[in-house]
């Protein structure tokens, strides 16, 4: 049982860390991209959206190349923290963060863009700075977008496979998350175990969909 649960806990851990870190990244980039105008803004938006269309294997390949112990980034990270990025939890965490970035940032940005411009302008004329305006007026008015972003990021991380397999492999306790465990048990011809993992993920996905629907109704009523 403990052995069966390990990949599920690992998936959960990965999803929680990814969502927490991306929540911070999402809010900060929402602030910068929505409240300021500067050169190269549409390029940054395009780069953030890139993982949506990029095949996971392409992303996985570049991440693998970048994080190799012999590469610059991988070497620096290993020297600084004494941990190796590839085939470790840190590696798949970074991979998930990059891969799920648009799932967090896009809903936040479109939520912000959908707000009437006059709201933030009214706040400015009432003597509030950009930062105050962002957190006191804009963020409270995109609650449903924020919830959607958190949930979609979380669910997307749980379901991620290609990037994890490429940069993390299949290492128990480090990178063998639930989706990889299905693959692993298939390879080991333990079809009943693979079946159980698949069932858990199926139920999880259904619950997420219901949760999103329920939340959207609830938030609409606020």
């Amino acid at each position: 049982m403990e052995q069966f649960m390990a990949p599920l806990w690992l998936s959960l851990k990965l999803a929680v860390f990814t969502t927490l870190i991306l929540a911070l990244v999402g809010v900060v980039s929402g602030y910068v991209l929505h409240m300021f105008s500067f050169r190269g803004k549409s390029l940054i938006r395009a780069i953030i959206a890139l993982p949506l269309v990029l095949p996971p294997t392409v992303l996985g390949y570049y991440l693998l190349v970048a994080m190799q112990p012999d590469s610059f980034a991988g070497g620096v990270f290993e020297k600084l923290f004494g941990v190796r990025m590839v085939f470790s939890f840190y590696g798949i965490l970074l991979g998930s963060i990059v891969f799920s970035l648009p799932f967090m940032v896009s809903p936040i940005l479109s939520g912000l863009d959908a707000l009437p411009k006059s709201l933030r302008e009214a706040s400015f004329t009432l003597g509030k700075t950009r930062l105050q305006t962002f957190f006191k007026v804009l963020v409270p008015n995109i609650k449903s977008s924020l919830f959607a972003a958190f949930i979609m990021t979380f669910a997307h991380t749980i379901g991620e496979f290609g990037v994890v397999l490429m940069i993390g492999g299949n290492i128990p306790g480090q990178t063998r998350v639930a989706s990889i465990a299905i693959f692993h048990e298939m390879e080991a011809m333990n079809y009943d175990v693979a079946n159980q993992y698949a069932l858990v993920l199926l139920v999880f996905s259904l619950v997420i969909i219901f949760l999103v629907q329920w939340l959207q109704k609830r938030i609409a009523l606020w």
């Binding site: 190799q68 085939f87 492999g169 290492i171």
Partner: peptide, 20 residues
């Protein structure tokens, strides 16, 4: 002992890329 099964080629590329 943890066994990590895979195609020999896949495992090789993982090893070259630093798999532990």
């Amino acid at each position: 002992v943890e066994l990590i099964p895979g195609a020999s080629g896949t495992l090789t590329s993982q090893i070259i890329n630093g798999a532990p």
